[in-house]
């Protein structure tokens, strides 16, 4: 969801994740919420992000929305885990163009820009 907003940078998204410590948060499974979010997510960015945090179960290509409505919840459970339960505790997000590192510390990305980037 986030991008690098340094002034003048064009190729801002997706930020590459460099993971140092990943933790698992347990989050209640809520299919309605996941269906709502599914349409808003850049699938490739999510897959790459999840992989760099060590979770490789997600399919390369976003499945058809029909799968979301089917009785088989295995995909939704994977999606749920990647989206909500994987939590980058320590590490950084790296801008694809400038290589600027956005540090993630105690689970919180520091997205404030430096003086010369505003």
């Amino acid at each position: 969801m986030l991008s690098c907003n340094i002034k003048g940078v064009v190729n801002k998204f997706p930020l590459r994740i460099v993971a140092e410590k990943v933790i698992n948060k347990e989050v209640d499974f809520n299919p309605d919420f996941l269906k709502h979010m599914f349409g808003k997510i850049e699938w490739k960015a999510l897959v790459d992000g999840a992989r760099s945090m060590g979770y490789t179960e997600l399919p390369d290509h976003a499945p058809d929305t029909k799968l979301l409505e089917s009785d088989d919840e295995s995909f939704l459970i994977q999606f749920h885990h990647a989206l909500l339960e994987l939590h980058l505790e320590e590490g950084s997000l790296v801008c694809p163009e400038t290589g600027r590192k956005i540090s993630v510390n105690k689970g919180i990305p520091n997205l404030l820009l430096h003086e010369d980037e505003v």
């Binding site: 991008s3 998204f13 808003k40 850049e42 990305p109 404030l112």
Partner: peptide
């Protein structure tokens, strides 16, 4: 209670959302 999905340190004056992201 369930934890927030995310907590960010950012500036609302210069928000870092990817372009094209809306209605979320």
């Amino acid at each position: 209670l369930p934890m927030p999905v995310a907590l960010l340190r950012m500036d609302n004056n210069l928000p870092p959302w990817r372009s094209g992201l809306k209605e979320i």
